[in-house]
């Protein structure tokens, strides 16, 4: 059936969990593009046939016209599927920059593997734009929106993070399972990445 490949691509995107990234399916994307080329060839063939029969391509509504129309619609449909796939992934990638971290290397490895080369580029540029804007206005826009009751929070380290990590007011030795009293703004990014958890009570 027509424009089936584009549908498969969108379906694959939708089958993942909401707001989460799946590996960029380059293979399927290429298949959609191949199918577009195929539709275009058949469309051209039908138009040429009409011109060969000396009928007015714009006005005639014969069988060839409707065949060409179907191929044209399938092309547009495939285009929409491709655009939606890339657009929705870009949205998730922007979210990563806002919520997790502005450096690509800070992202967990399993996420990095899922991002295609051009998406990495996009991520880098979006982060750079965000950083320069935040430097201009002088506010960290990607921290928690709710004002804290206390600037310090108690955290537990969940993963080995190495020694001598530089925080804003001290260097800490963040060994696994150790507990610390950290500035909230320092801890936030590590919590978001799942390296620490906040302790309450």
């Amino acid at each position: 059936m027509y424009a089936k490949k584009g549908y498969e691509l969108v379906k694959e995107f939708a089958s993942g969990e909401k707001g989460q990234l799946q590996p960029f399916n380059e293979d399927l994307v290429n298949q959609v593009i191949d199918q577009c080329a195929q539709h275009y060839l058949e469309l051209q063939g039908l138009i040429r046939k009409m011109q060969g029969e000396n009928v007015d391509v714009r006005e005639t509504r014969n069988a060839d016209h409707h065949g060409a129309l179907i191929h044209h619609l399938a092309l547009i449909r495939n285009k929409r599927c491709l655009m939606a796939y890339v657009y929705n992934r870009a949205e998730i990638i922007r979210n990563l920059a806002w919520k997790v971290g502005l450096e690509l290397l800070e992202l967990p490895e399993e996420i990095q593997e899922k991002i295609s080369h051009s998406e990495k580029n996009y991520y880098g540029k979006h982060s750079a734009a965000l950083q320069s804007y935040m430097a201009d206005v002088g506010i960290d826009l990607n921290v928690d929106m709710v004002p804290p009751k206390d600037p310090y929070i108690k955290v537990r380290v969940l993963d080995d993070m190495g020694e001598g990590i530089l925080l804003s007011d001290k260097t800490a030795n963040l060994a696994r399972h150790s507990m610390h009293f950290l500035k909230r703004t320092d801890a936030e990014q590590y919590i978001a990445r799942g390296l620490m958890e906040e302790l309450t009570g």
Binding site: Y7, V10, A14, E42, R61, N62, A63, H66, A68, R80
Partner: peptide
């Protein structure tokens, strides 16, 4: 929304139709 995934999937649902015109150069039924 043009980019809406659900909208795209909803439009893939099948509708039975009757052709009024003959159509050349397409294979509707595989």
């Amino acid at each position: 929304n043009y980019y809406d995934i659900d909208d795209i999937l909803a439009e893939e649902e099948f509708v039975p139709v009757v052709f009024h015109n003959a159509v050349n150069g397409v294979k509707i039924d595989e």
